[in-house]
Design a protein around this nucleic acid. Structure first.
Length: 264
DNA sequence: ATGGCTGCAGGATGCAGA
C-alpha cells in the first residue's frame, strides 16, 4: 500500500500537475497540504473521476489539508484538539480499511513559526505540544497509524543544504527540533530516515534565488509511523521529479510503501 | 547578493510562506 504526502501550495494552481502525478503514481492514499481553498471550492469531482474518495478541511486563502483515498473512508475527523480558539485548518484524520490493509491516516500542516519574535513561534510550539498529546492518544489504540505532512521542521543538520543559514529560523530552532524529538520519542518512526541513511535528501526548495538548480533544499515533509505501521514499512522515497515540472509546488511528494502481507 | 518567487483574494497590492 502506497501512501503519499505532498504540500501542493494551492490546489487551483496545481491541479494539472497533481492529476498527472496521480495518473503516473496511483498511490492508494494521498495526504495534501496547503490546499488554500474552502471545502466548497475544492475540485473533488476531478479526483473522484480518477477513482479517489475525497475528504478536505479547508479555509479561505491559505492553509487547508485534504486526504484522497481509493477506498472509502470509515471515519473522517477535522482539526487538532486542545484549543477551541484555533481556527486554522491544519489537520485531517481518516480511518481507511483497504483490501491491502487498514490504517489510520493523518494529513497535517504544522505552522511555520516565523518570525520567531512574533506570536507565530509560540503558536507553532503550542501546536506541536497539542500534536504530541494527539499522537499519544492515537498510539494507545495500537493501530497502524501514519502521521503524514509538512512538519516545517528540519530535524537534523543533514536535512539542510546550509545549516548555518538556518540558525535561528523557526524551522531549525532548538525548541522546534526538541519538540519533534519528543514526538518521535513517543514511539514513532520517521519513515524516510528509517529507510535511507544518505544525507542531503530534500523535500522543499524555495522559489527564490535559484534554490532548486543549486540544490539548496531542506527536508521538512515527513511520515511518522506507529510501531504497527513501522513493522510493515518496505520503502520511503522522495519524488524530486515534480520540482522540475511546469508551475511546480515548492514541495515534492514523499511516498511510503507498507506491506500488510496480503497475498492475492 | 538587496526577502531576490509564488499563490491567493480581489480587482491594487498586501499577506503568507519557509
Amino acid at each position: 500500500m502506497q501512501i503519499a504526502t505532498w504540500n501542493i501550495n494551492g490546489i487551483k494552481a496545481r491541479i494539472e500537475g497533481l492529476i498527472a502525478w496521480l495518473e503516473d503514481f496511483a498511490p492508494e492514499i494521498v495526504c495534501l497540504q496547503e490546499i488554500k481553498s474552502i471545502d466548497d471550492a475544492f475540485p473533488a469531482g476531478v479526483f473522484e473521476d480518477l477513482g479517489y474518495n475525497v475528504a478536505s478541511h479547508g479555509q479561505k486563502g491559505f492553509n487547508g489539508v485534504a486526504i484522497l483515498s481509493r477506498t472509502p473512508f470509515d471515519e473522517v475527523s477535522a482539526g487538532l484538539p486542545g484549543d477551541d480558539d484555533d481556527q486554522q485548518a491544519r489537520l485531517l484524520e481518516a480511518v481507511i480499511s483497504a483490501d491491502s490493509g487498514a490504517v489510520r491516516v493523518v494529513s497535517l500542516y504544522l505552522p511555520n513559526g516565523n518570525p520567531v519574535d512574533s506570536d507565530k513561534f509560540p503558536y507553532k510550539l503550542a501546536w506541536m505540544k497539542r500534536l504530541e498529546a494527539f499522537a499519544r492518544d492515537r498510539l494507545a489504540l495500537e493501530e497502524p497509524l501514519v502521521l503524514a505532512g509538512d512538519y516545517n521542521v528540519i530535524a537534523e543538520p543533514e536535512d539542510v543544504h546550509d545549516p548555518a543559514a538556518w540558525e535561528g529560523d523557526a524551522l531549525y530552532r532548538p525548541e522546534t527540533r526538541h519538540a519533534f524529538r519528543a514526538l518521535l520519542n513517543l514511539g514513532l518512526t520517521e519513515a524516510f530516515r528509517a529507510c535511507n541513511g544518505e544525507a542531503g535528501q530534500y523535500s522543499f526548495w524555495d522559489y527564490q534565488a535559484g534554490a532548486w538548480p543549486k540544490n539548496n533544499g531542506i527536508r521538512i515533509d515527513h511520515l511518522l509511523l506507529s510501531p504497527q505501521a513501522a513493522d510493515r514499512l518496505v520503502s520511503c522515497r522522495i519524488d524530486k521529479r515534480t520540482r522540475g515540472w511546469e508551475k511546480p509546488s515548492d514541495h515534492v511528494p514523499v511516498i511510503i510503501d507498507l506491506d500488510f502481507g496480503v497475498r492475492q
